[in-house]
Amino acid sequence: MSIHTRHLDKRFGAVPVLEDINLDIASGELVALLGPSGCGKTTLLRIIAGLETADRGELYLAGVDASDTPARERQVGFVFQHYALFRHMSVAENVAFGLRVRPRARRLDERTIRTRVAELLERVQLQGLEDRYPAQLSGGQRQRVALARALAIEPRVLLLDEPFGALDANVRKDLRRWIRSLHEAIDVTTVLVTHDQEEAVDIADRIVLMNAGRIEQTDTPEALRMQPATPFVAQFLGAPAQGASVAAC
C-alpha cells in the first residue's frame, strides 16, 4: 500500500514538530525515517498509524484520503519501541489479540485462530514459547512477539518505531537482516524510524532524512551520500557513515 502525505503540519503547544511534510512511499518499499532525536520522525510515524493527528495537511493511504480514518480501521501494523506487549497475556494470546477483537461478522473460529497464531510464531521463530509471558522473554524475543502480533492483522503497512533501539549490538545486526527478509517475504510496505544511519543504510531501499521537523532529502542510501542536497545531509552522513558502510560492504 502506498503512503503519501501533503503539507503535514504538527505542533505540540507552541513547538512545531513537523512542518510541510511531503512524503511519497510506493507500495512494497522499505523506507527508513532517519534523523537526530527530536526531529519529528516518530511523530510522523504515529500520524501515519493514526495515533497522532496532524494539525494541517492530508495523509493518503493507497491513494485514499485517510486523514480522518480512526487508527483501528487503518489496518496498520505498529511495533512500538518498547514493544508494548500485553503483560497479562501469554505470547499466543498477544499474537491472537488482533484476531479476537475483530467485529463479530469477520471473527474467525477458535481453531483457525490457533492455526494462524502457530503459523505466525513459526514465522518469527518462537515456536514453543506460546505459553510464556512477556516478562519471561528476552528483548529480541519480545521484539519478535510484537512483530508477530502486528502481522496477525495482515497489515498493509508495517510501521516500526526504533525497532533495534533497545537491543544488544550483535542481536541488532541479525534482526536487521531478518526484518529485511521478512519484508521481502510478505507483501507489505514497511516504514521504520531510526536515529542510526548505519542501520538505515543497511536495511532501507530509500531513506527519508529529517531534521528539525522538516524533510532534508529523500533518496537511496547511495544517492544521499553521493549527492547530499543540504549541508546537514552531508554532515549527518559524514565520515563515520563511510567507514561503517565500507566495513558493511
Partner: peptide, 25 residues
Amino acid sequence: TEEEQAALTLGANGWQIFWRVTLPN
C-alpha cells in the same frame, strides 16, 4: 498508555481495550 495504543492499532474499540487490556492490568 502504550498497551492501549497497541490494542488500538490492532483494531480494538474502546470497550474492548478497557475490558481486555486496561482492566486486567
